[in-house]
């Protein structure tokens, strides 16, 4: 089966993004496909490469980056939600005249259309949020 996954709560504050990660891993292990994960609301905060959790804690961003790399998962960060919360890739930083960018490898910023498209193209859409 083809799963689309939505993450709508932020890292470290809320379990949602961890549950989503474990779900995606379990789905892949069971032979399912997860072509895309869409990060919305505070979920976009997962994508910053500047977070530094204590060394004995899981690194949520790095876990997602590794998982995406290993399985070719498209990690999409909603642009409107990201801009509100100060998450920029190189292009957006230049376009908006900002002096830095912070998007981690494996994530890309795009529009809400990607969420709708994921709903259309997958068999099940699963939301991890509040």
């Amino acid at each position: 089966m083809k799963f689309g996954v939505v993450v709508s709560e932020g890292p470290y504050t809320h379990q949602a993004v961890d549950s989503a990660y474990l779900f995606v891993k379990a789905a892949l292990d069971a032979g399912h496909e997860v072509p895309r994960v869409f990060f919305y609301h505070d979920g976009v905060n997962v994508s910053t490469r500047l977070s530094i959790p204590p060394q004995d804690e899981r690194n949520i961003q790095q876990n997602w980056t590794a998982l995406a790399k290993g399985h070719g998962i498209d990690l999409v960060v909603c642009i409107a939600a990201a801009q509100r919360r100060g998450l920029l890739d190189e292009n957006e930083a230049t376009r908006q005249g900002k002096d830095a960018n912070n998007i981690a490898e494996g994530f890309r910023i795009s529009g809400l259309g990607q969420l709708i498209e994921m709903g259309i193209q997958t068999d099940r859409l699963v939301t991890f949020g509040d």
Partner: peptide, 14 residues
């Protein structure tokens, strides 16, 4: 942010 998805999603003729 829900309403924003609804408005964008409307373009997909669902």
């Amino acid at each position: 942010e829900s309403l924003e998805v609804v408005l964008i999603g409307a373009a997909f003729d669902q």
